[in-house]
Design a protein around this nucleic acid. Sequence first.
RNA 1: GGGCGCGUAGCUCAGCUGGUCAGAGCACCUCGCUUACACCGAGGGGGUCGCCCGUUCGAGUCGGGCCGCGCCCACCA
Length: 856
Amino acid sequence: MDGLEQKWSAAWERDGTYRFDREAPRERVFAIDTPPPTISGSLHVGHVFSFTHTDLIARYRRMRGIDVFYPMGWDDNGLPTERRVQNHFGVRCDPSIPYDPDFTPPYDPDFTALARPSAEPVAVSRPNFVALCLQLTDSDEKVFEELWRTLGLSVDWSMTYTTIGPLAQRISQRAFLGLLARGQAYQLEAPTLWDVDFQTAVAQAELEDRERPGAMHRVRFAPAGDGISRPEALIETTRPELIAACVALVAHPDDERQRELVGREVLTPLFGTRVPVLTHPLVDREKGTGLVMVCTFGDLTDVLWWRELGLPVRSVLGPDGRLVDVAWGSPGWESADVGRARSAYRELRGRTVNQARRSMVELLQQSGDLVGEPQPLTHAVKFFEKGERPVEIVTSRQWFIRTVEHSGALIARGRELNWHPPYMRARFEDWVNGLSGDWCISRQRFFGVPFPVWYPVDERGAIRYEQPIIAHDEQLPVDPSTDVPHEYEASQRGEPGGFVGDPDVMDTWATSSLTPQVAGQAGEDDDLFARVFPMDLRPQAHDIIRTWLFTTILRSHIEYDSLPWRNAAISGWVLDPDRKKMSKSRGNVVTPMHLLSEHGADAARYWAARGRPGTDTAFDAQQMKVGRRLAVKLLNASKFALSDLPPQGEALTHPLDRAMIARLAAVVADATHSFEHYDYTRALERTEEYFWWYCDYYLELVKGRRYDAAPQAAASVSRALALSLSAFQRLFAPFLPFVTEEVWSWWQEGSVHRARWPDAGELASHAHGPDGDLPGEELALAVAADVLREVRKAKSDARRPMRAALARVVVTDTAKRLRALRLVSDDVVRAGAIEQLELLDGEELSVQVEFAEDAE
RNA sequence: GGGCGCGUAGCUCAGCUGGUCAGAGCACCUCGCUUACACCGAGGGGGUCGCCCGUUCGAGUCGGGCCGCGCCCACCA
């Protein structure tokens, strides 16, 4: 077993075994939209798991005579790479710094961060930073490729793409410009989800909830004006630091308790800002006091109320997550007591959200506006999935792709798609139904695909965002921070009457949503694209249905009015043996290379293949040992069957051989049907189950005949062994590509992975000999196996070796089963070392044995 | 709060349209170095199929209701 990975992966590369035929017509192509792994993430045993699943399907289709389009992509774009580069090289990007062609990073890459762990990061220009990103991703990609080759993925390595490469950038930018021309992309100054540490906009799809401790504060709002008798308003909030940003209070329209307040105005505590009390049906009467403070902006509901109730913006939070300076008394910041507002706000200004919250609680306690003590609670807070602090909502200019208006159509697309397993569609529909806004695709980051636009700078130096200067197609890909639009000179950058480049880059999903176009080279090689698109299969894990799967469908729907692929095969996750999700922070990650070298690629693939589509699977080294045993068994069984083979006959003359082949035909039919429905696990189970049975019973039953019997009977065994071995080797080929290729090479021409998938009908025709009585013969095989088992049991009970000879064996069974047994009794006698076999009519099977009094 | 999935031997799981379905592998125990295989082979013990109703001649298998676990989503003030 050892060394097969190196031997055969080199051979496959040399022979182009998995090369895609670019001349293949569309109907003979099976195109796979491979997930480009995030190569800055750590290699994970989950990669082995899900990529094996895809490879199983690819190998099956290829053996069905289909040309499989199976490229590999690397997702090197985006924040994970930036973060890794920062840590790895000890740098941070500062776009205001000019490019330094002689720059060398403070850390020697070969020594990683260990060289100077505590050093301050060095600021570098954007081009230098991007160069470091490219340097690092290049080495990361080599590590991944090495793993994939060792694992035996049957990808065509001549078609590799990256999500940051020129091809992806060109396609991504061209697609963006297409959306812009059709009004499907737009920019807007609007409240945006914002990560204060990365200082970038993030998308709804990149959010996750985390449970965090907090506190509920009951706060009094005084009535505005002089009406002493008017009621005061009580609200409850977890975010008192945003009271300065309060623009309204809202109650449910039917809430009797608030009836007196609604329509009046109240004053914010400390700041004395007049805010109206309004109604909105979304308010939950049961929650808190039934009265909610609306701030610009505390959460997404605030945004909704702000929009629907036509409220003003009063923003206190800066992009760095600190409270900005506010000119109390100026328009929009009117106060009943400007001096008091100023002195209160002085305690908050420049503070982080958490600091400001603590200060605010003290201030409210001093002023008496806090009712009772803050009540500690644990609540879910939204985080950017890669972030450290809760997301905030700040107003900024961002690019969006229209999403919400396509919701209905996207649901319909989801129903058009074949989901494997089918219930995964529910997650997609949940997500589409829950969309709360269009997709924000701009990020205030550096390592990504830039927006291919510039903006004119008018004579007064103002940037005219509403009149973007569009890059010409032949310029793509462009980097507007260094490239110059056609109508301008480089010297005009940033000058009045000149231009500026759009400073942002696209969300990584804005490019990843185009993987079918990138892999198929849309707009670059239209002949290729027409042969592969729409693709056949999108394999991916269930956690990125809302991102990758959703956005890919959206882009394809808008651009081509079609699905990007016909099938989506959803993999589960790998859990650790305690059923916890594996993660670096838990320290429960198993590194895949170690796994492959310890157990072998076939064994690891076996374990992966036992994970059904969509099902989370616990990591289980024991299963890999089982897989290795299966591989070894196939090796040994093949060795037995193929060594010193008597001459093959043309036909299967022996009933036992025919029956075995008939069963095999049924297994082939089952495995084929399962694979057609993406149920590779079932295909493996059925094949494996029958293969062990075949080794334990059939091979034992025919062993004697193969060595000793008359030429014609032996010729039938030879023929049966050749047929069955060939079929087993091909059935196992998708799962155990290395060992099957090895055993195939012993006696066949070419690669097993280019061999034709076994045909159930053809096998069955071998089983129907001229005088074949199929039902009777299949029963014969079953009864023979039963008798053999009973004989073994008797020997085991008597603590005798299996080779111990039996002087006399009496088999009692029904007449029908005995009739069947007679057809094959010669093999049973040899396999059991039986000297005299007697058959006795009875009700059910029972076997009596007498041991021969031999030399023992 | 809504949705989805899962609860079958100590462990990991098969059981497709209801009637040899009570199974497999691992683990455990016993035996056996038999000319494919000791990286092995043969045999064995072990479960009221989460709980309660119902449909049916008959239910792990269908319907309803609970309980537990996991995941996804949510307008979490």
